[in-house]
């Protein structure tokens, strides 16, 4: 079947012949490789997207269930050529190592800061508890967002 949805503001269509996930369709059909696949079961957050404004794991969304929805991926969080403040904050403090988890953290943090521009450290951690990073130990990620939240950063 052919499905259609809005991806980062653009109407897109894709053909799904088997129960593919939204993540598979984003990557393999639409060339949106920013969302990453690392666990296929919603346990790492690397494929995080906003589906109709809600932060979800795109690996657990049946692609056909995105029909008519608005999907925002890491490619769509900032205008072309610009960085979202969340991306700037991570870049400044060295919160990126291998970078495989990074798009998921960016999308989850964009969601957090839209709902709560001045989160506490606790709120930052709880909002990002579904995103696994294997490289950084999270220290720089926390520092990036504490700084962005305008709170004291050690």
């Amino acid at each position: 079947m052919i499905i259609g949805f809005r991806l980062n503001g653009q109407e897109v269509t894709a053909r799904v012949d088997h129960p593919a996930s939204l993540l598979d369709v984003l990557r393999d059909q639409l060339g949106a490789y920013g969302s990453k696949n690392a666990c296929e079961q919603g346990e790492c957050g690397s494929c995080s997207v906003l589906l109709d404004g809600e932060l979800v794991c795109s690996c657990l969304v049946l692609a056909a269930d995105a029909e008519g929805s608005e999907v925002t991926t890491v490619e769509g969080v900032a205008p072309e050529g610009e960085l979202h403040p969340v991306q700037e904050a991570m870049n400044r403090v060295g919160a990126v190592q291998c970078g495989f988890c990074t798009p998921g953290f960016v999308v989850a943090a964009v969601d957090l800061f839209e709902r709560n521009p001045h989160p506490t450290s606790r709120e930052i951690k709880e909002a990002l508890a579904g995103n696994i990073c294997r490289c950084t130990g999270y220290g720089a990620i926390i520092r990036a967002f504490e700084e962005l939240a305008g709170r004291e950063v050690r």
């Binding site: 919603g42 346990e43 957050g45 995080s48 809600e54 932060l55 979800v56 794991c57 657990l60 969304v61 989850a108 709880e126 909002a127 508890a129 579904g130 995103n131």
Partner: peptide, 9 residues
């Protein structure tokens, strides 16, 4: 339940 992403879905 799971993570924020899971609780949203």
């Amino acid at each position: 339940v799971g993570s924020p992403q899971i609780r949203n879905a």
